[in-house]
Design a protein around this nucleic acid. Structure first.
Length: 520
RNA sequence: GGCAGGGUAGCUCAGCCUGGUAGAGCAAGGGACUCAUAAGCCCUAGGUCGCGGGUUCAAAUCCCGCCCCUGCCA
């Protein structure tokens, strides 16, 4: 069984999660579930970044002890992810002992490699960015990203990491591994950044107690980004034996705003420490409202739990993946527009197209064949089904999740047209003479819905499982193998997909996606 | 300021690489049907393809300039 380790960026524990965070978690979860549906042994890790001055200050502001504060935040965030159906196998927190052990280990390896040295640093320090800014980087004497914060002149003796030394190796790695940074637009940005040269960066902070003590200099703490990045390694058990069962990671899912940390600093740290590099860093775009990240402004109208409850969590997951491209951005002009599109998509695509297809199929199988769909012969719908499976598989392997959904919906539309074209109700009236044709049509529809369930599983786990079971599937999530989709996944001939079908007992049930009628 | 991507039907976008009748989905209007969640199916879009030049028999599609938006870096 192939192993597959993927991660999300860990979240900074100084505030509440919003729809933008959900976009990343759901996308990564879709990939995790997709890999599982293919039979991979998946490890999916998410977590919290709990160190740094920003946390210490927020805790103080709330009159709380930092540890108590991050404990509370971990509960809040973890709860949200549970309600969204995020199937993470681990939840790493940077205040855990297993994490600081890994951080200390990697720092020590970097030191042994001769990549750490001490120097005096002076500059303006932005607490929110957790980084120094040069004078010419300031706007009106403040950090351009956080203009509301005072920025303070700071001088300190720091440890530095010889990042500059890794410019050429990194460039070479990106050249020889084009899949390392994706999508390609992000890779180009990193290439250009590297071509411009790299400065060494500080690896420690003094007078900042809320962090991991720097090995060999207990009055310093490890630079928060180096601390945070190492989480990907610490969930594998690094540096203990056996961590290589999961490392290198196949995929780091991150936001496009932190590519430099994941595509430059992190791999440089790993190169320095003599640890293998992750295979791919995927930088997704943002879901935004009125041009800004979804946050406090839109937050009142776009509360995550309310969005989750509006049409059910699976519908919300579907909406996020359907509406926003996984390789780009999606801006809504207002919170109202977002909700309107959510409602429309829900009614048009889930209730009308898919939900109705499920009920009309189940109803016909019961009305004309007492609930049992016979295999019948292959139809044009089987051809459409196989090509959808192919397209879906292609798109999902390329991490184009929104296009994967499109492949599913295309098949659903096709199936509805197929019903109207075949007119099974007429075939039923014709009796014996049309019996074969009726069986073929109903069989094709049931096979189609089984494949839809398999493809939909990563996006809408509960609804897909329900659909799967109604269409004669066994307990548990649908898989490629069982959904007559295995030949496609395995690259075999298309025709074999349908021939595996045997009589299928179909169950009727309440509407899978009841139409939403907003205050008639 | 440098680099990258983008500006196409009311909305969200595809097409542009490999020039030659402008497409899809949603929303809207009409029709035939009845298995179904009054859902589905079929028909209906006359949009200066950001602006101005150029190349060509022919440009949304290639070249040049400009305007606007977004991102990365300064």
């Amino acid at each position: 069984m192939a192993r597959y380790y993927l991660t999300c960026a860990i979240d900074y524990a100084n505030g509440e999660p919003h729809a933008g965070h959900a976009f990343e978690k759901v996308g990564a979860d879709v990939i995790a579930r997709y890999r599982r549906s293919l039979g991979d042994d998946v490890r999916f890790a998410i977590g919290m970044d709990e160190h740094g001055q920003g946390i210490a200050e927020e805790a103080a502001r709330r009159g709380s002890d930092p540890q108590a504060f991050v404990d509370e935040m971990a509960n809040v965030w973890g709860g949200v992810w549970r309600r969204l159906g995020i199937s993470n196998d681990d939840f790493i927190r940077t205040t855990e002992a297993r994490h600081s052990r890994a951080v200390v280990a990697i720092i020590e390896r970097m030191r042994e490699a001769g990549d750490l040295y001490t120097d005096r640093y002076a500059g303006y320090y932005c607490v929110r960015c957790e980084r120094f800014r040069k004078e010419n980087e300031l706007a009106d004497g403040r950090c351009p990203l956080h203009p509301k914060r005072e920025i303070t002149w700071t001088e300190e003796e720091n440890y530095f990491f010889r990042l500059s030394r890794y410019r050429d190796p990194l460039l070479q790695h990106l050249e020889t591994h084009p899949e390392f940074v994706q999508p390609a637009s992000r890779r180009n940005e990193i290439l250009r950044l590297l071509e411009g040269g790299l400065d060494d960066i500080s690896a420690s902070r003094s007078r900042l107690p809320w962090g991991i003590p720097f090995p060999g200099a207990q009055d310093h703490t490890v630079y928060v980004w180096m601390d945070a990045l190492t989480n990907y390694l610490s969930t594998t058990g690094f540096p203990e034996d056996g961590y290589e069962d999961w490392w290198p990671a196949h995929l780091h899912v991150i936001g496009k705003d932190i590519t430099r940390f994941h595509c430059v600093i992190w791999p440089a740290m790993l190169l320095s420490a003599g640890v293998e590099l992750p295979r791919t860093v995927w930088a997704h775009g943002f879901v935004s409202v009125a041009g800004g990240k979804i946050s406090k402004d839109a937050g009142s109208e776009l509360n995550l739990d309310e969005l989750n409850d509006r049409h059910g969590k699976d519908a919300f997951r579907f909406f996020l993946m359907r509406e926003a491209p996984w390789d780009g951005d999606r801006n809504f002009s207002s919170a109202a527009e977002l909700l309107e599109r959510f409602d429309r998509r829900y009614n048009a695509e889930l209730a009308n197209d898919l939900g109705n297809l499920v009920s009309r199929t189940a109803a016909m199988v019961h009305k004309y064949r007492e609930g049992r769909a016979l295999p019948g012969g292959e139809t044009v719908l089987d051809e459409a089904r196989v090509s959808s499976l192919r397209a879906y598989h292609d798109r999902m392997e390329a991490f184009l999740l929104h296009e994967g959904i499109e492949a599913i919906l295309g098949l659903v539309r096709r199936a509805n047209a197929f019903v109207d074209h075949e007119e099974p109700w007429k075939l039923a009236k014709e009796g014996e003479s049309a019996a074969d044709r009726l069986d073929s049509a109903l069989g094709a529809l049931v096979r189609c819905l089984r494949s839809v369930a398999a493809m939909l599983g990563p996006f809408m786990p509960d609804k897909a499982a329900e659909l799967w079971q109604r269409m004669g599937g066994s307990e548990g999530p649908p898989t490629y193998a069982e959904a007559a989709a295995a030949p496609v996944a395995a690259g075999l001939q298309a025709g074999e997909a349908a021939s595996a079908a045997t009589p299928i007992d179909v169950r009727k049930g309440p509407s899978l996606f009841p139409r939403y009628d907003p205050d008639p």
